[in-house]
C-alpha cells in the first residue's frame, strides 16, 4: 500500500514534469516494461485530472498542470471529459438523494389524492358513500327549510312586538300628557282659592277656618250637588309645629270616615293653608268634623265643623 502511494507520488510528479531528466527516463523505461506500473500511471493520471476538474490541486500543481500536462490535445480532451463526468456524477448523487427525501411527501400526497378520487374506491364504499350523501343531503334540505320557517316566524314576532311597543309608547305618552294636565290643573286650583260655595260640575270647593261652624241649619249647610265628583277643602290654621299634616274627617259620632296625608302646608296671610280633595260620594246630608293633625302624631292642630247638604 505504501509502495502504491510512493509510486503515485512519483507518477504525479512525472505527469506534472516535476522530475529531473534522469528520473523521468527511469519512470518511462519502467512503465514501458512493467504493465502494472503502466496501469498505475493511468490511474495516477485519472486522479490528477479529477483533482484538476474538482479544483483540488495545490497552486504549484495547478501551474505545472496547465503549463506542462495540458500541452497535448488528448489530455485536454480527457480533462474536458473529467469535468463533464464529475458534473454528471454530482448530479446523479444529488438526484438520488433528493427523491429519497421527496418520496415520503410525494407518497403521502399521492395516497391522499388517491383517497379523494372516488373512482379508486371499492364498490361497497362507493355505494355507502352515495347513500350517506343522499341522507345527509336530505337532512340538510330539511334543516334549511325548518330554519327558514323559524326565521320567518321570529321576524313576524319581532314585528308584532315592535308594533306593541309603539302602541305602549303612545299610551305612555298620552298618560304622561294627561298626568301633566291634571297636575297643572291641580296646582292652579291649589294656588287660586276657590270661593266658598263655588260650584262646578265636577269639583266643589270650600274654604274652612278653625272653629268656624259652617252649615249649621238648613240654610247654612254646604251644598254639594249630585253632579260633583270631588270636594275640594281648603283649610286654614296657625301652627308651626309640623312639617306635614294629615286631614281626618269624622262624623259627629267621632267615627273616622276619611284620612289623607295632606303634605306640607302653604303659607298665606300670616297663617297656613292646606288643601285636600275628598270624593264627593263620601258626603251625605249630614254634619262632619274635619281635623288637621300633625303627621305621625295624634295632636289635633285645627278642628272644623262641616255641615253638608246633598242635592
Amino acid at each position: 500500500m505504501k509502495q502504491v502511494e510512493e509510486n503515485d507520488d512519483l507518477l504525479t510528479r512525472y505527469l506534472l514534469g516535476d522530475l529531473s531528466e534522469e528520473e523521468q527516463e527511469r519512470v518511462e523505461e519502467r512503465y514501458i516494461s512493467d504493465r502494472g506500473f503502466y496501469d498505475q500511471l493511468l490511474a495516477a493520471e485519472d486522479d490528477l485530472i479529477d483533482s484538476y476538474a474538482e479544483k483540488a490541486l495545490t497552486p504549484q500543481q495547478l501551474v505545472s498542470f496547465e503549463k506542462y500536462f495540458l500541452r497535448s490535445p488528448e489530455r485536454q480532451n480527457r480533462v474536458a471529459f473529467a469535468e463533464a463526468w464529475m458534473a454528471y456524477v454530482s448530479h446523479q448523487w444529488a438526484a438520488a438523494k433528493a427523491p429519497a427525501a421527496a418520496k415520503k411527501t410525494t407518497d403521502t400526497k399521492r395516497s391522499l389524492f388517491e383517497f379523494l378520487r372516488p373512482a379508486a374506491w371499492p364498490l361497497a364504499l362507493r355505494v355507502g358513500a352515495a347513500a350517506l350523501l343522499i341522507v345527509v343531503g336530505g337532512w340538510l334540505t330539511f334543516e334549511v327549510f325548518r330554519l327558514r320557517t323559524q326565521v320567518q316566524r321570529a321576524e313576524a314576532q319581532r314585528a308584532a312586538l315592535q308594533k306593541q311597543n309603539e302602541d305602549l309608547e303612545q299610551q305612555i305618552y298620552a298618560e304622561k300628557n294627561r298626568s301633566l294636565e291634571l297636575a297643572e290643573k291641580l296646582e292652579q286650583e291649589r294656588i287660586q282659592p276657590v270661593p266658598p260655595n263655588q260650584v262646578s260640575s265636577e269639583i266643589v270647593s270650600f274654604f274652612l277656618t278653625p272653629g268656624l261652624v259652617r252649615g249649621t241649619g238648613e240654610a247654612k249647610r254646604n251644598v254639594i250637588p249630585a253632579s260633583a265628583r270631588d270636594v275640594n277643602l281648603q283649610l286654614s290654621f296657625n301652627d308651626e309645629q309640623y312639617e306635614r299634616y294629615d286631614v281626618v274627617i269624622t262624623n259627629v259620632e267621632g267615627r273616622e270616615i276619611w284620612r289623607k296625608d295632606a303634605g306640607k302646608p302653604q303659607s298665606r296671610n300670616g297663617g297656613k293653608t292646606i288643601a285636600v280633595r275628598v270624593p264627593a260620594a263620601l258626603f251625605k246630608t249630614n254634619d262632619y268634623i274635619v281635623n288637621v293633625i300633625g303627621t305621625d302624631s295624634s295632636d289635633k292642630v285645627a278642628r272644623y265643623a262641616f255641615s253638608v247638604l246633598r242635592k
Binding site: M1, V4, D39, Q40, L42, A43, D46, D47, N77, R78, F81, A84, W85
Partner: peptide, 21 residues
Amino acid sequence: PMNSLRIRVHRIREKLEGCLI
C-alpha cells in the same frame, strides 16, 4: 486491491469517454 479497482475504473472511464465522443 485498491490499485486494481483504480485500473478497473480507468478502463470504464476510457469506454465512457469514447462513448461520449
